[in-house]
């Protein structure tokens, strides 16, 4: 198995084998990211496809300063964000009931007894705006300031979207657990 440096060199010289090997190495991880941003698998595959086209055509811009996998993830996330840009604009304009969010957010969750597939289903049940902000903040680790810049929204909007997403997810997790305990 070739290392990242060799694969990058091969991709820079448009070597198809190197491109295929790079794809095989990272496709599943990147697809996991895509699935978190998309409601449908077909959409996730289209985003992954577009992201890898961008990766191969812009690989010369990779400076070897940070982790290559991190660079790949950023491209995939940005591709997903571009995908939903027009829809997100409408989502962020919707008013949010802050009182309801606070009430639900105080409940607690224990343990991690929910599978990854179920977690993805729960995330995908969120509206586009909530889903994207929650993913960026909770899973990817971006700050509200960074999210605001990426999505061209205010920090307060990012915070309120996150708050609402947490509340909804907590509600859904609780409901899921009740079903699992008392089927």
């Amino acid at each position: 198995m070739l290392g990242d440096a060799e694969l990058i060199e091969g991709c820079l010289s448009q070597d198809k084998k190197a491109q295929r090997m790079l794809y095989n190495k990272y496709a599943s991880t990147m697809f996991g990211i895509c699935l978190r941003y998309c409601k449908r698998r077909a959409e996730a595959e289209d985003i992954l496809q577009e992201a890898f086209v961008r990766i191969f055509t812009h690989i010369k811009t990779y400076r070897s300063e940070g982790s290559f996998e991190g660079w790949l993830k950023r491209i995939v996330v940005n591709t997903a964000l571009n995908y939903y840009k027009s829809q997100l604009k409408r989502c962020f304009d919707e008013p949010i009931d802050e009182n309801r969010d606070m009430q639900i957010a105080t409940e607690s969750i224990h343990g991690s007894d929910i599978s990854a597939e179920e977690l993805i289903k729960l995330i995908n049940s969120l509206a586009d705006g909530y889903r994207v902000v929650f993913n960026l903040y909770a899973v990817e680790g971006y700050s509200h300031k960074e999210i605001a810049t990426m999505l061209n929204i205010s920090e307060n909007t990012s915070k309120s979207q996150l708050s609402r997403a947490r509340a909804i997810l907590q509600e859904k997790v609780n409901a899921y657990r009740k079903i699992m305990i008392h089927p």
């Binding site: 295929r20 794809y23 496709a27 599943s28 991880t29 697809f31 996991g32 699935l35 978190r36 996730a44 595959e45 992954l48 496809q49 890898f52 607690s108 969750i109 224990h110 991690s112 929910i114 599978s115 990854a116 977690l119 993805i120 995330i123 929650f134 903040y137 909770a138 899973v139 680790g141 947490r166 997810l169 907590q170 997790v173």
Partner: peptide, 23 residues
Amino acid sequence: NPIDDLFSKGLGTYSEQPSEAVW
């Protein structure tokens, strides 16, 4: 936040094989 922890731990390393049509 426990919700954040739940999802970041559960999905941080999640991977799934896409279909061959993507390549």
